[in-house]
Nucleic acid binder design. Sequence first.
DNA 1: GTATCTTTGAGACGGCTTATCAATTTCAAT
DNA 2: ATTGAAATTGATAAGCCGTCTCAAAGATAC
Lengths: 145, 145
Amino acid sequence: MASSRNSKEMETLREHLAKHQLKLTRQRELILSAFLRQEHITAEAMYHQLAKTDPHLGLATIYRTLNLFCDAGLAQARHFGSQTQYDNVSHKGHHDHLICTGCGKIVEFENCDIERLQEEVAARNGFTIQTHRLELYGLCSRCRH
Amino acid sequence: MASSRNSKEMETLREHLAKHQLKLTRQRELILSAFLRQEHITAEAMYHQLAKTDPHLGLATIYRTLNLFCDAGLAQARHFGSQTQYDNVSHKGHHDHLICTGCGKIVEFENCDIERLQEEVAARNGFTIQTHRLELYGLCSRCRH
DNA sequence: GTATCTTTGAGACGGCTTATCAATTTCAAT
DNA sequence: ATTGAAATTGATAAGCCGTCTCAAAGATAC
């Protein structure tokens, strides 16, 4: 907890809260610190994970808080299957996803060349990129047969 | 309708049906011909669209049929927001999006170099790409100031 | 034509997410 | 430290989307 209390993500959250007249609560701190340990997680999964240490934390609060993180730019929601995955944006640069439409397997990757081209495209259109999302859908080697 | 009755997509569907002991129905023909006119559509949108000409066509039938098209390789489901988009696989020109987080402006673009790199990444991981989604979020020139 | 097996349509159902609301907590101003 | 206005929480109801159920209708092979 102490580790996340002074992290740059916590600072980002504080700024976002201040800017929008929102308040820093015990739950928001707790959920942030749990979130920062994950690369991506669903609300349900986090609910079960936190139930061990805080049995009264409500599922609605987790949904609300993860959506708050999205607003603050700390998380990014991604819909897969019937659920929403909340991706940790701060994890080692940004990683993208290869998603198998057959079995749902997800492979993460990073590609600097693609990122550089994205910057070029954005610049050509007068944009400065804050974040991006790239998902490649296809069949993995196993499902292709 | 006559135009789709002999299309190659219709032939693909016929083959799939034959191979799985399924039947060609009036509804399946109707939904296919409507689907082929779209780049991508939701079941709900198609329901409203077809309600004009065929008020008794059930929503469940549309879902079932669009999923059938996915099995047959004619369509591909993609989760977007809270809904499922059914993409027309035969439509090739895929475009990506630049989205301004300030004003919501959306600019469409295409970039062959990025697409080529995507193929490389996929191949390196044993995937064959069916489709992709690339969204760049940032500030447009106007909102940056 | 008829038997058989699939499909349809209408609504019930179930999973995931959001809305509701009284009670509690935060935080800025005393 | 106390107070008071405003935000947040937790429990649960409600909502939305997509699938399942099942009796009636339709398609295909014989």
